[in-house]
Design a protein around this nucleic acid. Structure first.
Lengths: 219, 219
DNA sequence: TCAAAAGTGTTTCTCTTACACCCATGT
DNA sequence: ACATGGGTGTAAGAGAAACACTTTTGA
């Protein structure tokens, strides 16, 4: 018997930067959100519940990352990664939490974290970057309707390098992962942008789509 | 508090087929090898120990797959995948095990398995196939020295489709993941094959190597 | 000398990349 | 009218895929 807990790497793109959500615990210690998985509870549900309680964030895409030994073999930490559209998720500290805040994921922007949390965070970042190169993940980082410019910005934030707009548009549209919603949005000066939404349904990772997705990440 | 256990998808290439190692428990039930992770023990060590005890297989490459809820939320199963060189691992049933046997991974070749085990097995197969397309995994499925023909056969068994020998040799050798051992091996009629061994060391997944590795899997 | 497996280069085509200008709107 | 972001096509280079024959051995 061991105690089982979850930790979450919660990521969003805010202001063209990839940011992670951290919680400040009493004693000025910053940590990843998370909590125990009670006996009888499902792991993923417990992760969602812990995140909702500690930070107010709920209803996002959640993926299991890895399970780590903790507490000298007396515990197990099942790490998850969550992708959220930052605007749709106002944060509020829950019980036991002093503060909830977004931090840029660059080393310099992060507060001090213990070694375990750093490991989980690195693992999560590696996973999302690897996955961005072949899967249409960025749609999870955006509101329901978005412009291709916003989608490109999200990819650029995750990947950490700029993409060519013409190639990006060609490949995204060819991949069929987004569809034109029919609406446009004018915001300040400049030509109004068409709004797209992500196409529901599982994406078989066909050879063709893998290729296209790779292209998305390869700019 | 939950009980934590491991299950292992143990894979080998035997006779040009990808096969999985299963154990028969009393009552004629076939199952994946595995066992409890005792309080205080590390997950991966427990997985190795369980596999060694139940089947006699030890010292192979082990990778964590996923953690599943079990027993109505009262347990957690941390699934692993193991790649072994079949010839180097004679199997022998341990305590509590009636029989240990290799089965082809095709649906038709497998015995009846419970739903949980089937799910873990499918997950393991998906993982190894995905990984074969970009990482030099097949070397783990072969003895220390092997011919390029054997390596190609191993890849073909994992991927489930034939590869072009010229492209395969070119890409494998260009990738630098194997080196010529200097020896050759004559076996029956036909020109003797050069023996290769895998090059130690971590393979940074450089753009170049990713490309090459992709080539390996893309035939 | 025949059967069997190992080993070797080149060509074609597709995909990826790089690149510059016009369009529609707000101010 | 101009500043701002949105939207579009093409050409050159790189990588992947397809392809057939010669070599070396055992029988």
């Amino acid at each position: 018997m061991k105690h089982v807990l979850t930790e979450l790497v919660v990521l969003a793109v805010r202001d063209a930067h990839l940011e992670a959500l951290l919680v400040r615990l009493p004693g000025n210690r910053w940590a990843l959100p998370g909590g125990p998985v009670p006996d009888g509870a499902a792991i993923e549900e417990a992760a969602r519940a812990a995140l909702a309680e500690q930070t107010g964030v709920r209803g996002m895409v959640l993926e299991q990352l890895y399970s780590f030994d903790r507490d000298g073999g007396h515990g197990v930490c099942v790490a998850h990664i969550a992708l959220v559209a930052a605007d749709r998720h106002p944060v509020a500290p829950g019980p036991g939490v002093v503060e909830v805040r977004w931090f840029g994921v660059e080393e310099a922007a992060l507060p001090a974290l213990d070694a375990d949390a750093s490991e989980v965070l690195s693992y999560g970042l590696a996973r999302i970057r690897a996955k961005a190169a072949y899967a249409p993940i960025a749609v999870h980082l955006l509101p329901e309707e978005f412009t291709l410019g916003e989608l490109q910005t999200a990819y650029e934030a995750v990947l950490g390098h700029p993409l060519d707009p013409r190639n990006f548009r060609r490949d995204v549209l060819a991949g069929g992962v987004v569809e034109y919603s029919g609406a446009v949005r004018a915001e300040g000066p400049g030509r109004p942008a068409r709004l797209y939404r992500s196409v529901k349904g599982d994406f078989q990772v066909s050879a063709r789509e893998r290729r296209i997705a790779r292209a998305i990440g390869a700019g």
